Simulated assay, not measured.
Amino acid sequence: MIDTLGALGWLFLVVAFGAIVPVVPTGAAVSSAAAFALHEYPYAIGLVVAAGAAGAYTGDLVMYAMCRYGGEQLARRLHWLNDEERLNAVRARLQRRQVTVLLVSRLIPGGRVPVLLAAAFAGVSWRTFVIANLPACVLWSLVYSTIGLLGASIFPEPWQGVLAAIVVILVVNQSITWISRWWGRRAARASTSSTS
């Protein structure tokens, strides 16, 4: 049990750190932990979901606070703010549907950081952010845990399930990135041709 709690503590720290430093593959960490738990500690799967959600929530709160109080200068210095056009589009969506955008942003690969930045810069209240982000983090952890469980249920060895979960996450994330870029280029061509 102590080993399990230590592993869950590490999962919490990795996910919280990854929420602040977006290069850490937090989804893969949760999926891997779930895949491993299914083979070794099936009773701990709910705890994996909870640790992943708690880490994501804590990291998001820290990042939101940094953006609220550090502003755009800090976001640029930390290389969180790279795409002004995308940030402006997210700001417009936030003005129409704050809670919905905050909920969905965690599930879209690469969508969380622009939404956090736009929400912080637009002055979305702490209360709204805290309430909307909690179910988003739980749902995110549940989705990635499920991916890990599916991988673990297909393969007999824990390492095979972990590897399958990581590969699935990388393929899904890369596919969504390519589709987003394709839509962005298509929209840019459409707006260019309509202004001509």
Score class of each variant (00 low, 15 high):
V101T: 13
N82E: 13
E84Q: 13
M66V: 08
D60E: 13
G151P: 00
P114G: 09
L142A: 15
A37P: 00
L116F: 02
A120L: 03
A132D: 03
A35H: 04
T58Q: 07
A34Y: 01
S31V: 07
F36W: 10
T146C: 14
I45Y: 00
V162A: 02
F36K: 04
T100D: 15
S141M: 03
L61K: 10
V113C: 08
Y43A: 15
G161F: 03
G55E: 00
R91D: 11
V138C: 04
R93Q: 15
S145W: 04
S145H: 05
A122N: 14
S125K: 13
A65E: 10
G71V: 05
L81E: 01
A56Y: 04
Y43F: 14
L102M: 10
G46Y: 07
A89L: 15
S141W: 01
P156C: 14
A136I: 05
M66T: 05
A56P: 02
R68V: 09
G55R: 00
V49M: 09
L107M: 14
F36I: 13
D60C: 09
A34I: 06
S31E: 05
L117N: 04
V90C: 09
G110S: 08
V101W: 06
S153P: 15
C137V: 14
Y69F: 15
F129R: 00
L103H: 06
A122T: 15
V48F: 05
G123Y: 02
W126M: 14
W126G: 13
T100S: 14
M66L: 14
V104F: 07
L134K: 06
V124M: 01
Y69R: 10
Y43C: 14
V138L: 07
Q98R: 11
R77S: 08
E40T: 15
M66R: 04
V115P: 02
Y57G: 00
V124L: 02
A136H: 02
R106Y: 07
P158H: 07
S145T: 09
V162Q: 04
E85W: 12
R86I: 11
M63V: 12
A54K: 02
Y69T: 11
I45K: 02
G110E: 08
A51H: 03
S141D: 06
H79W: 15
A54N: 03
A152E: 01
V113L: 10
A28G: 11
S125T: 15
G59V: 09
V162Y: 01
V49N: 04
T58S: 08
